[in-house]
Amino acid sequence: MGYVTSLFPRKVIAAVGPVVDGPNLLRGLGLEPDAPWDPKIMVPVTVYYDMLERIAETVDPTDLPLKVGASMRCDEYGALGLAWKAAPDLMGSLARIERYARVWTSVVEYELRPDPRGVLLVLQRAGARRLGLRLSNETSLASAVSIARQVSPVPFAPLEARFQHPPPRTLTHHENWFGCPMHFDSDLDALLISHEAARQPNILGDEGITRFLISHLDEELSEIAGEDTLETRSKAAIARALSEGLPKMADIARGLGLSARSFHRRLSEQGLSFQTLTAETRRELAEGLLRDERYSLAEVAFLTGFSEQSSFTRAFKRWVGRTPASYRKVHGTG
C-alpha cells in the first residue's frame, strides 16, 4: 500500500473550508483534527483518494488542486523545504524534488527530463486514473509551481503544463494559476520549465546549508520505515513477469510507476543493473521452487522464464555449480 504525507489532506480540507465536515474527514484518515500538522505522519493513498472523491460530491473540485497548491509553503516540508530554498538555482530545487520526493510520498516519482526548450519535471504515479488520483496529480504539480515561485527572485511560470487526464469543464482557473498553456489528454503529467527559469538563482541559495541538509535528507531516506527497497520491489515485479518470458526493463519500470530512464538511473545510483537483478531473481526463484517438490523441473523452468528445460538446466548449473535435479536432492523438502 502506498502512502502520502498527511500535509496534503489537511491542506485540502483547509482549502475547502466549512462546506464539508473537515474533522470527520480527517478522523476517517486516522488523523486527529486538532493535532499539530506533521508532514512525517503518512496516510494511505487510497483513503486519501476516497476523501478527495467524497469532497468532489459536495463541491466543484475544478480549482481545488490549485487552491491547495497555492497554500503550500517550503517551511512546512521541514528539511526538504529548506533544501529547496537553499539550492543554488531553480534547477537545483527541482533536482531535490526528483531525488527526495519519497520523504513525503511513496506513490509518486519525479523525473527531470531534457527538452529542447528547457527541462520537463515529469510526475509519475501508478494506478487507475480515478478522480482522486487525477486531482492529486494536479495538486502535486500546482504545489511545484508554488514552491518555484517562493524560491525565485523573479516572477515564475512554466512554459506549459501537461496532464494525461481529460480537461475540466473550464480551463480558466488552471490557466490563471499556472500562467501558461494547458495541455490535457497529454502523454505526460509534467511541467515544462525554460532554460532561463531553471538557471535562475534562488533567493536564499547557500552551499553550506545545502550540504548539511542533503546529508540529513539522505539519512532520512535511508530510514523511511515500512517501505520496500527499490531492489526488493523490482525483484518482486520481475518474478511475477517471468512466466511470460524474460521481462523488458521498460515494462517492469512502468509497473513500478517509473519511466525506463528514471528506473535505470535509480538502479545505477544503488550500484545495480536490470540485467543483474533479473539474473538474481531467476536464480533465487528457481532455488525456492526446487525446494518444493510439488513443482516439476519443467514447471520450474517455465516459471523462471525459460522456454526449454535444457536451457534452464544449463543456466542453473552455471549459477550454483550443480544441476536442478542434484540441487533438489540436497535441498528438497517434499
Rank of each mutant, 00 (worst) to 15 (best):
L192K: 00
S106G: 10
P65C: 12
P153T: 03
R283P: 00
L230I: 10
A286V: 02
R117D: 15
E308L: 13
A225E: 05
E231I: 00
P65H: 03
A95E: 09
I203L: 14
F312Q: 00
A315D: 07
P9N: 05
D38F: 08
R265E: 08
V59S: 03
K317T: 06
E196G: 14
R318K: 04
L94V: 03
R169M: 03
G69H: 11
A239D: 12
D228M: 13
G255N: 13
E196D: 13
S311C: 10
L256E: 09
A126M: 15
R199S: 13
P18K: 03
I224A: 05
F184Q: 05
L112T: 07
F263N: 10
D21A: 12
L7N: 01
I147P: 05
L191Q: 05
D218E: 13
P201L: 07
T281W: 06
D189E: 15
W37L: 15
T172S: 14
G245L: 02
V68F: 10
L80K: 06
L52I: 06
G208N: 10
I203H: 06
E76R: 03
R129A: 15
Y295F: 14
P247V: 09
L121K: 05
S140D: 12
P33W: 04
D63A: 14
S307Q: 10
M42P: 01
P116D: 07
P114N: 08
T313M: 02
A14H: 10
G69S: 12
E231R: 11
Q270A: 15
T105D: 08
S326Q: 01
S140M: 04
L277A: 09
G305S: 00
L204R: 09
G132S: 05
A101Q: 11
D115R: 05
V119L: 11
A225F: 08
A286P: 05
Q164V: 11
E227P: 04
G332E: 11
T58L: 15
Y49K: 06
S326K: 06
L297F: 15
P33H: 11
P166T: 04
G81P: 03
N176P: 00
A70E: 15
L80H: 02
F163C: 02
R169A: 04
G334R: 04
P324R: 00
G226Y: 04
L82E: 10
R199H: 11
A190L: 01
R125P: 07
L191E: 05
R328D: 01
R10V: 03
A35D: 00
S186M: 03
R117Q: 15
T58E: 12
A237C: 14
V320A: 00
Q124V: 10
R282C: 02
T172M: 10
V45F: 09
R162D: 04
A260S: 15
S152T: 14
S215F: 11
L133E: 08
R314K: 07
L26M: 09
A279P: 02
V103S: 01
R283M: 03
L258Y: 11
L213D: 05
F184T: 08
V68C: 14
L82Q: 12
D38K: 08
